[in-house]
């Protein structure tokens, strides 16, 4: 359970988040949607304590991050897998080493088990042959998928996705969406997906939080979305609908 309470953050006098409240229930996929620059990524960084709020707090499993020591905070962070927007693979390591890195660092698995698990994860993101390649040799989409493999390798309780499908072709996007959905349903992983891809949202979201100008004016389920009356939300949704054609009724 991740609880965000009254969180405000500004950079250089420019308020990015203002008095934000959000609950992320366990075992669900929560999609944080909003326009670029609305503060979605900043919100996500607060969840793992990469940014310190100016005021308010983030509580993960009952532990308020602002009250933890650095080493306790790092313990909390190990419950998370984070997929960064650009993938954030380590350039110096091969794709396989990237995936194996958290396993080697945080688990007591044998080298054999680590290799097996890395293969599994690369299989899941449909890149079984990418192992020996360096990130620079992979395309942006492939990098993102290897990064996803790395994020899920240690089977974290929470996975945060920052724009998981942006820059991917529709087919790969569907694969990623399915993966996110499957992780949620089969392994009980709690996911927070920051995205502006409504197609993804409609196919994977259990809950949706709409971020607009540093606040969350609306939260609800996919069904609620269709009954929503907020002008800004509808404008955002319609912009996507126009792009993808008709809104899907089946969530």
């Amino acid at each position: 359970m991740i609880q965000i309470r009254d969180l405000s953050k500004s950079f250089g006098g420019n308020a990015v988040l203002r008095n934000v409240d959000l609950d992320v229930p366990e075992g669900e996929v929560t999609c944080v949607i909003g326009r670029s620059g609305s503060g979605k990524s900043v919100l996500m960084r607060h969840i793992v304590g990469l940014l310190e709020p100016d005021s308010g707090r983030v509580i993960v499993d009952g532990a308020p991050l602002d009250e933890l020591t650095y080493s306790e905070l790092r313990q909390v962070r190990r419950k998370f897998g984070v997929l960064f927007q650009g993938g954030a693979l380590f350039d110096s390591m091969s794709a396989r080493d990237n995936v194996e890195f958290p396993l080697r660092t945080f688990t007591d698995l044998t080298p054999n088990e680590i290799r097996q698990r890395a293969d599994e994860c690369l299989e899941l993101v449909e890149l079984p042959d990418a192992g020996p390649k360096k990130p620079a040799e992979l395309s942006g989409g492939q990098q993102k998928r290897v990064a996803l493999a790395r994020a899920i390798a240690i089977e974290p309780k929470y996975i945060l996705y920052d724009e998981p499908t942006s820059g991917l072709d529709p087919e790969t996007s569907n694969t990623i969406d399915e993966l996110i959905h499957r992780l949620g349903t089969t392994m009980g992983t709690t996911s927070v997906v920051v995205t502006h891809d409504m197609h993804s949202v409609l196919s994977i979201a259990d809950r949706i939080a709409f971020v607009h100008e540093g606040t969350i004016p609306w939260t609800g389920t996919v069904d609620d979305l269709h009954r929503a009356e907020s002008e800004t939300l509808l404008a955002f949704v319609r912009a996507n609908e126009y792009k993808i054609g008709v809104p899907s009724e089946t969530a």
Partner: peptide, 21 residues
Amino acid sequence: AELGTMRVKEQIDALEAMGLN
């Protein structure tokens, strides 16, 4: 250059987010 690149490409954030110092 190496650390700077890691910083701007969020690799340092990735390390931190994993729970590494």
